[in-house]
Simulated assay, not measured.
Amino acid sequence: MNAKLIVSPESTEGWIREGVLAAKESILIAAPYVGRVLWDLLLTRPRSLPTTLITSLRIGDVLGGASDIQAIYELSQNHVRVQSISNLHAKLYIVDQAKVLITSANPTQNGWRNNLEMGLALHSSEIARRALQILQAAKPYRWTSSQLKRYADWAAVQPKVVSKPWIVPVELLYKDFGGWLGLVMRAVAQLPEEFTLTEVYQLALPQAAQEYPNNHHPRDKIRQQLQGLRDLGLLEFVTPGRYRRLKVDLMDFLR
């Protein structure tokens, strides 16, 4: 198995562009931060080509400018499956489940064109398979286009500079996000700082029955949204079935 050193700003974007243009089966990109450069590149691929983006969508990263939530939303509109893992730090590009680039470079302007970044590219279906298994074992949360649109719209009207600590509690967000995520946010906002899954069910299930009477697996949907709140940085999983609300102080990201 031969590996090739790939360096930014010289060759990272070129390797990825070549892979996208040659892809026949699938593309997967996993990176905590995403910029407009990825949207520009993925526009060159056939819309029917299965493409997945796994990223981190923590509120602090989005409002601090590390990730472009509008570009991520537009990718979802362009048939890119968007998922999130709250503690993702790896940067991984996989083409056709065999061509692999493991690198320090995020798909951002800095990661591809400005910073000194290094990675190794290789051809190995076994490493690709194992990497995909690790990502799926983290149970990434699936974002719909409508959720990402609400997130992007909300982020667009938030202040970028503040002069005092700015805390974002979950109770200030549920009206903007709506849908299942907003429904669970609304339930969590009524609970103590630390709470159980049973308590979430008690509040959320009656509301879900009214808003989504044709959904026959509301408990599964509620658990999925709790994962989404964790990936936003608003919730901590304490022990199985027990959670803690987090109030995110964004000053560190916005200074």
Rank of each mutant, 00 (worst) to 15 (best):
Y151T: 03
A105C: 01
T196I: 12
G60P: 14
S11V: 04
P50D: 07
D96I: 01
A71E: 07
H123K: 10
L92K: 03
L135D: 09
Q190D: 12
L250H: 06
P159G: 08
A204E: 08
A187Q: 10
V162F: 03
V188S: 14
L28A: 07
R36C: 03
L226Q: 11
T55F: 03
Q70A: 03
K24A: 02
P165R: 04
L232F: 13
S84C: 04
Q207S: 13
L75K: 09
Y243K: 06
R58P: 08
N87W: 05
R142I: 12
F177C: 12
R130L: 13
I27Q: 02
P192Y: 10
Y212H: 11
E211V: 12
R36E: 05
I29R: 04
Y212V: 05
S11C: 02
R81I: 13
L53D: 04
R47E: 02
Q190L: 14
Q202A: 14
A208D: 10
A137D: 15
W39K: 11
A208K: 02
A204T: 08
G178E: 14
P9E: 02
T144A: 13
W143E: 06
L181P: 09
L88C: 08
R244V: 13
G228M: 09
A138E: 09
T239M: 08
F177T: 15
L191T: 12
